[in-house]
Design a protein around this nucleic acid. Sequence first.
DNA 1: GACAAAACAATATGATCGTATTGTTTTATG
DNA 2: CATAAAACAATACGATCATATTGTTTTGTC
Lengths: 213, 213
Amino acid sequence: MLMSNARQAPAAAPALSRQQEKSAAMRLRICKAAAKRLAANGYHGTSIKQVVEAANVSLGALQHHFPSKDDLVEATAEYLLGRSITWFQRIKTELEKDRSAFAEVMRRSWEEQFTTPDYGALLEILVAARSDASLRKRIAPKLEDWRDGIEAEMRDLLTPIAKDAEELNAILTIGRCMMTGLLVHDGLLGDEQHMRNVIDAWVGLVAGSARKQ
Amino acid sequence: MLMSNARQAPAAAPALSRQQEKSAAMRLRICKAAAKRLAANGYHGTSIKQVVEAANVSLGALQHHFPSKDDLVEATAEYLLGRSITWFQRIKTELEKDRSAFAEVMRRSWEEQFTTPDYGALLEILVAARSDASLRKRIAPKLEDWRDGIEAEMRDLLTPIAKDAEELNAILTIGRCMMTGLLVHDGLLGDEQHMRNVIDAWVGLVAGSARKQ
DNA sequence: GACAAAACAATATGATCGTATTGTTTTATG
DNA sequence: CATAAAACAATACGATCATATTGTTTTGTC
């Protein structure tokens, strides 16, 4: 969790020198391009050269900031996960004191997060990491932080729907995993209405279970 | 849905000539090797050469049966989905008249299906197909048949847990997608006990909702 | 048993992969 | 402003990719 590694992916931004500014901007630009290519062509179909062209930078520039492909993928994952956390922070303030917060979080996270190219890119990275030990080692801790971050953000907002924190986390996990699987399975068939119906069924199920208690 | 294409992946086996037998055996052998490599190395890390070596066949033999990589991947997907359907047919007869059939189906499909190398291979194919239009066209109808097949097999067995067929299908979809997402997300972290807990939470949620009605 | 087609095999080919190498420009520091 | 390091750029390299090509062996049909 330590922040020793100074020139990691875009984090906070306190008083940067011109060089650091340039570097951060370049890294962000490359990560965005990488995410775009990953979402469009998948991990298998994305090469360094493609990212270079999409970002409109030289190969040398990319290599300077990301010596290996794993470095690039790791930074891209960090960028994407960071943006997701930001989204959850925003939705939290938006839905404060909304009685149907859970339903809103689920529906909106589906529309604004999971069906997004950004999440498609993240999915590619996660699946690639499954069968690549060195990449998995890099990604796993960031993914864990992401999950913990979401749970921390949602804790207060969604307290009413579960009997304890553990159950709430389980519900959040199921929702998150369901949406990912929905993309992989039914997303392949392209029936968006059907997917929305599944989300609604899920919301109904949780609501029904909560009412029972 | 027509069966015109005679020499597709291993289907039924009614009276084959020696040539057809050899062919089917070779195709099965190659598909098994492909699944093994996909599960171990992912789509991105699996090459034709690797499959050739894993199956211990010549490149020419593979090319004869699968002219392109997409042909191989399609046949492998069909093989894997077919095995999955077979599993559901077996579990159906095993759990007939079991009052806790739903919980058993969920828990056992997690252990015996989703956490299996075979499903890892299928996951690789599904994700790859997301960003590969031609592959998606080949896979999508087979995936749809698979989903429909599961729903058909489970219809009678799991009738009690839902108020109608539509809700039952939604529950099956959520369960299936959740397990897939669980592999992609929490599977990366390797905490198997946590994943089993999530499955149990899901079973409890559905049971609670069913009891309410 | 002759002939054709299917099955299997070995090697070649052009493209593309990730990375290494080497050079030039820009920025920070004394 | 001198010097070193960071940032950016261009080209090269060996490996590997999917597939094409050209052969040989096995099987089915007449």
